[in-house]
Design a protein around this nucleic acid. Structure first.
Lengths: 144, 144
DNA sequence: CCGCATCCCCCGCGATACTG
DNA sequence: CAGTATCGCGGGGGATGCGG
């Protein structure tokens, strides 16, 4: 864990390291993983209320994608009414620690990011009046 | 760094931790950050050849987005022909360690991810013949 | 050499409505 | 309750061409 170049071939040749970011690249995937890591296997409805602000369809998309990527296991029970829950796989569990490292970075630098966006927009408005809007990072307190 | 619930409020309330993933959510952003972390400030053309497989336009998009998010600093020189280079900010540098943690996970589990995708598709072909194609993680050795 | 302007495609998000 | 079917929208990836 010293020289960044140690992992560099992972990017320039076959980019293996990128896999870690791609499996969490979508908006809700990391939220779902983290929630289940914190509370254990959960049913979709529980996730809906626990997370908040996510629709059933989008949650289902996320769960299937996580299953597809091997981070989550779907566990259906042969009952009626239907019951299912989702649990982390070994790979999903192993991802938790790196995710916490990213989270620690965020709690330290999230304000810096938002400030940078703010200053960038001011600067751009001055030098390029007609500039296209950029994609801000959307936080609940951030909503327009 | 023990209980995942310690960071959980970051997700359910204002989702601060998500910022860390959003700033690297796009395909090339992590590659660019990592390359510059390894080799120091670089000019766009150098990045183009070093990284490979990325077009000038897409690289420029990535650089501007990274600048917008406060991870990179654009440093133009008043010369002709024009010269520019990009360097990591403090926030960008601080991101390197968490990124390496993610990279370590990837080198351990990337194959598991690809296997999971493979098995998922086989399973799905059996139970849902008309299923829509899913978005595979694209690696150079992976290209169709 | 830098990077902007276009154009196209794909896909995730989100809302809504419906079935077993 | 779990999951699917649609539809619209927005935005990134990629290719190409132009201008400072």
């Amino acid at each position: 864990m010293g020289d960044p170049a140690d992992q560099l071939d992972d990017y320039t040749s076959d980019c293996r390291a990128r896999v870690a970011f791609e499996v969490l690249a979508n908006r809700w995937d990391s939220v779902v993983v983290f929630t289940i890591a914190a509370y254990g296997p959960m049913r979709p409805t529980a996730l809906l209320t626990r997370i908040g602000g996510i629709s059933p369809k989008v949650l289902n998309d996320a769960l299937r994608r996580l299953e597809y990527n091997g981070l989550m296991e779907r566990r259906p029970y042969p009952e009626v009414p239907p019951r299912v829950d989702y649990a982390l796989t070994e790979a999903g569990n192993a991802l938790l620690e790196p995710m916490q490292a990213m989270g620690a970075w965020a709690s330290r630098y999230a304000d810096a990011v938002l400030d940078a966006q703010e200053r960038f927009e001011v600067r751009e408005a001055y030098t390029r009046p007609g500039a296209a809007r950029r994609r801000r990072i959307s936080l609940p307190g951030n909503a327009e």
